[in-house]
Nucleic acid binder design. Structure first.
Lengths: 224, 224
DNA sequence: AAGTGGTCTAGACCACACT
DNA sequence: GTGTGGTCTAGACCACTTA
């Protein structure tokens, strides 16, 4: 039983739902249980995940329906981190400093003399069209030595987020002068700085990322 | 059976957990089932909700643990809407217009000649300390006539959000001149405009809200 | 009256951690 | 080997909507 039944059912349902139009009802839980030769509770679990993902919605005592796809839960301010679409990263520079700003120390919950890896990179679409600049901070003690030579693996944040949690702060500011030309923005352009802290399951901070978003290219959108 | 058993168990567990320290383990699902005289599946459902809310976390084959409270899922940009703490609203003005800007028409999915109620209000803490200004737009056809005399009820968005979904866009801008003094901000201060669209379950837009946040008072924070 | 989702039970087997 | 969470079954009753 490598793959749980409810996940198989969920996959089959996604297949079928994709051909449905919005707001049409799907078969009842009891019917689906017969169809998939499983118990109603198992079918229910498959449906529950689809509801949580915004693909279906339930109406008590009436039925289960296909939701508007546009309303799937999403947070585009993490999407580049999570999906890594066709985005190309260019490392601007990196260093390891033994002392860092209080800003960084506080977010990573480290002391004055802890070393921190800092990477600054530019994310672009199609070689042109700069999307955002990331300043990434990781305490050296949290980095496996073998990963230091492999930035691609180290800076793929998906796995960290899956296992922990992510806190984001949205701060309005004027684009920093040194980033204005990289982002192809006029000076004095208002932008949104997103401060990301990736935490472990136990709540300890692991990675701190400051994202300077280009408002002409990237609109941050969240759907609950 | 007014209140489901799993919700009663959940409430009891929250009580007990509150005295636990972070990362301590709670009793096993089987023990809790005995303790609460319920089936394991019912206890599991209570635990699942606490996990979804970030109060507990599970570690497969090891146990269930108390999570760091700071990591509870939250979105402070909706909190004033959702919680209505000690915030006081002052209506700046309101009107019903038969024609509205394309901006509003597009977000509410209405036509040129549909009437729209617009309410502009200032949210403050402690009679001073302005937090944000909201511009609220609702198509008149979506308003029950009895609600028109009761703004408090009409502008309490909790029930709408519970039954539907919420999409937010975060846009950087310079504070509009006419709002600068109301928010106690200097002109040319960068702020974040949050565009909220509350949708029905079927995906149709119901309410459109533009929130101009005072960055000195209100920091937008999201935890997943 | 029939059908739906919401809840609940009392069992069961599995893979995996720890000892 | 023991204990844990993860999955699964085959029933059951309830409140509610709809016809």
């Amino acid at each position: 039983m490598a793959i749980p039944i409810y996940l198989k059912i969920k996959a089959k349902m996604i297949d079928e739902i994709s051909s449905y139009t919005v707001n049409t009802s799907i078969p009842s839980e009891r019917d689906l249980a017969i169809k998939f030769d499983a118990s109603r509770m198992t079918v229910r679990k498959a449906i529950q995940e689809l509801v949580d993902e915004g693909i279906l919605y339930r109406d008590s005592n009436r039925g289960t329906f296909v939701a508007d796809e546009k309303l799937h839960k999403r947070n585009t301010s993490t999407e580049p981190i999570l999906l890594e679409q066709t985005i190309k990263y260019k490392i601007i520079y990196f260093d390891i400093k033994s002392s860092s700003s209080h800003d960084v120390q506080n977010h990573l919950d480290i002391r004055d003399d802890d070393s921190v890896l800092r990477v600054v990179r530019l994310a672009s679409l199609d070689d042109k069209r700069p999307q955002y600049i990331e300043e990434i901070y990781i305490a050296q003690k949290n980095i496996l030595e073998e990963d230091l030579g492999d930035f691609k693996k180290l800076l793929d944040f998906n796995s960290y987020i899956d296992q922990g949690s992510l806190t984001q702060k949205f701060l309005p500011m004027i684009v920093p002068a040194q980033y204005a030309h990289l982002l192809n923005l006029k000076i004095n352009t208002p932008i949104i700085l997103v401060e990301n802290v990736i935490n472990r399951k136990n709540g300890r901070p692991l990675i701190y990322i400051k994202v300077f978003n280009n408002p002409n290219e990237k609109i941050i959108e969240i759907t609950t």
